[in-house]
Structure formats: structure tokens, C-alpha cells
Amino acid sequence: MDSGLDSGLDSGSTEDYETDVELLKRAWRQEKSAPEILQFESALVRRIVEQIQLMEETVEEFTDSGIDPLTVSLYQMDLDRTQFLLRSYFRIRLQKIEKYMFHIRDNAESHLSEKEKVFVERCCADLQTHLEKSVLLQLPSTYQSVFRQSSEKETDMVPRPHLDTFVVCKTNASQRPLDEPFEMEPNVLYFVRYKAVKKFVEEGKIDLY
């Protein structure tokens, strides 16, 4: 049961053997539950995309070679489920990027895939141009920033993820969340502040539900 402690994201779990689809399901669940954008699972996504392509070819061959339609439809369902997971994973990440674009561009760009990086740059540029053209450039020069209310203040107009959001999570081994006066029992669900378990979520030691 404790084997997950030393291994990385790809194997930290109680199961002996996990398919890539299960790993993707977990990545999707974590991404849905976490308030901030998590590290992009590039290796996993690459493998899944390959497997999906391969399966699409296989299903096509099956259809052509007149294999039992039931079998074909079952394979198609399996394919649809995996594609749903992958699309939903991309979509939730894009939603987060759109919501916190400036914050992510400046603080979490390393968490993004190459395509997401391009997307965040373009989002930021477009929104900034839009805001400037429509309003900001008409204002006195001290109020023209997209990022701050007035020139003295810090960047107080940048939407940021709320790390104090409470998340539901579970640990495989006993962990002490940062700054909290208690230990988490293994395999028990808790509502905990995301900030307190953030480090363990990133290390794959705590799963979000």
C-alpha cells in the first residue's frame, strides 16, 4: 500500500497495475477538482493520443472486414469514453487558462503544454488589446494599466485562483497537510483547504475527488 510514496505521478497508487486510461481518469479528476491549473501530463497525453489513433484504425478495419457489429460497437464505446475523458481534460484546462490568463502566463507557464502556451499568449494579447482600445486608453495615464487599479498599487486587477478553496481529497499514506494541526488518515475522505495539500497533490501523494 505504501509503494506509491516513492514513485512519481505515473505510478503513485494503491493498484498494482493501471492502464493509461485510468491514469487519464485520475488526471482529469484532479484537474476538475483543483482550483489552479496543474502540471500538464504531456507523456500520458501523448500515449493516450497514440492509443486512440491506433484504436480508431482497428475499429475501421473491423467495420471493413465484417466483424460482428456488436463487437465493433463495444470497441467504439470504449473509444468514445476515452475520447470524452481526453476532451474534457483539455477543456477544463482551457477554461482555467481563459479565467486566469494573466496569472498563468506570469506564474504557471511551465505547467502548460506547448499549444496551451501559444493559447495563453494569444488570449492575453487579445484581451489586453481589447481592454485598451475600448476603455483604458481613454483614461488618464495613471489608470491605463490592465493589471492595477492605480499606479502605486500592486497587480490587483489580475484574477487569481483561490487556493483557499476547500477540496475533497484522500491520501494513501498518512500525511500532515501543511499548517494544519492534524494528520490525515489513509483512505479516508476529507474536506481540506487546497493550499494545505497543494504540495502533496503535485507530488501525486494525495488524490482529489
Binding site: 478553496t165 476547500f166 494544519e180 479516508v188 475522505l189 476529507y190 474536506f191 483547504r193 494545505a196 475527488y209
Partner: peptide, 30 residues
């Protein structure tokens, strides 16, 4: 300790039902 609540043996649907409310309430307490 209002910074964390244990929900032992709750099922997926139960957790999902209370999540919006409990999450907000805890956040307010915090």
C-alpha cells in the same frame, strides 16, 4: 477544527451533493 472536515465512508454521490455547500461553508468559516 474548521480548516478540515473528515467525511469518512461517504459515497461519491453524497460527497458531490454536499461539496458546493460544505466547501463554501468551510471557506467562510476559514
Amino acid at each position: 477544527h474548521s480548516s478540515a472536515v473528515m467525511v469518512k465512508d461517504l459515497s461519491a454521490m453524497e460527497v458531490n451533493l454536499v461539496r458546493p455547500f460544505v466547501g463554501r461553508a468551510l471557506q467562510a468559516f476559514y
